[in-house]
Computed example of a mutant assay.
Amino acid sequence: MIKINRPKIPNIKIYAEKSESLAPELRANLLKLIDENAVHFPDFVARLKDENEKFTKAEEETLEAINYYADPENFKNKDKKVPSFTVYKNKELREHIRTLFNDKCAYCDSVFLGNSTADIEHFRPKKAFNPFKDGIDEKLIEPGYYWLAADWHNLLWSCILCNRKSNLDQPNVEGLKPLGKKNRFPIAEETKRIRSHNQNLETEKAILLIVDPCADDPDDHFVFPVKEEKDVGIVRAKIQENAQPSKKGEISIALYGLNRTKLVADRMEAGLDLKSIFMGLLDSIEAFSRKKNAGEDTSEEIEKFKFQKKRFQSKMKKTSDFLSFKKMLLEDFKNFPQLQRLGLTIESLLE
């Protein structure tokens, strides 16, 4: 997982074009349900009072969700039409999210589209949530974070194995385990969970128990051991200043399934590939120096160097998979005697 700096809401039709009208009765009911001091909707009350005011598609969907989910009586009425969530499926929005996450899963940092489809993931579950206390699945609780279903800041690009729940195996773990996020959303103090669109979501952030790649720095919570061959490809919770492993890291690894066997194998393969290219790059530089000192033709070595350097740099581009893992490998590569003997640095090879 890598840190993603999310930009402002994209200027696309569903977020920018105010073309949706609301029925008078819907406006009247919403005025009863939305607190004019609600931090997430600072101008909704004033706009709802203006009968000529129109809303964007994302705003309309959010308001319809508030109208339904904020009234407990609606859950008892089986005939009541449940509003649908469709904005997050918008093709233009989907493209912006794909680009933001560089075609990689927000959680496992893998490039997966060649073998699987992508999910537009809601970090905070929209319809219902599973408290997942102590790593145990619990009954779904309604409503979820219904007012965030179309929220740009709540949407991520994810592979189906991180986003959905599947029974998968893990190295050195007996049997299959249910891995994947699904509706799981644990926090440290359940009584402080935000359950209403009128509450300030910021107060919940301090008690989240899973890593949000757009709000947290994953490097603060995860570490990839590279010293022992048996550990290569495994992710572990980073030890904190209190000498304890990151709680967020531990729970995130289990919840997202970041140590599922195939993913560990893919990381290991990516690491071996990077190491092979790096060693080939050093060999070409050493061969060049040797031939140059001997007064021999170095044209072949120059071409090999250019090719290997280009490959090495391509493995560290923002669109390349498993970047956090690879960055830790590079730290280990700095101790290679051959690199030091040649008087080179990792940074110079990536320029």
Results as ranks from 00 to 15, higher is better:
A265R: 11
K165V: 14
L31F: 07
N90Q: 07
R236F: 05
L30F: 07
K8T: 13
I97C: 00
V87I: 14
K326F: 06
E204I: 05
F132M: 09
M316K: 08
N90P: 03
A270S: 15
D43W: 08
F333Y: 15
I251T: 13
D103N: 14
G343R: 11
D119F: 00
A28V: 08
K80T: 11
F101M: 07
E300I: 14
A106S: 11
T86R: 13
Q244C: 07
A128E: 14
T99A: 14
F307I: 05
N242T: 07
E204V: 07
F224R: 04
G249K: 04
R124K: 13
P10W: 08
K91W: 02
K205V: 10
I136Q: 14
I160C: 06
L113F: 09
K57I: 11
V211C: 10
K104S: 05
W147T: 04
D151W: 09
D109T: 05
D273F: 04
M328Y: 09
K247W: 05
N67I: 03
N77D: 15
N242G: 07
L258F: 04
I187H: 08
T203A: 13
F305H: 12
D321M: 11
F41Q: 12
Y88A: 01
K104W: 05
T56N: 07
L263F: 05
A46C: 04
K306M: 05
A16H: 12
S21Q: 12
N37R: 12
L258N: 01
G180F: 00
E121I: 00
N242E: 11
L63D: 04
L342C: 01
V226I: 14
M279P: 00
H197E: 14
I239Y: 14
K230R: 08
Y69T: 09
D119M: 00
K327D: 11
K291M: 10
L330A: 05
V264G: 00
N29Y: 04
V82P: 02
D220E: 15
E92Q: 13
R6N: 04
I14G: 01
L93M: 03
K247F: 06
K18G: 03
R94P: 00
K181R: 06
P225H: 08
S299H: 10
D220A: 08
A287W: 04
K318F: 04
K318C: 02
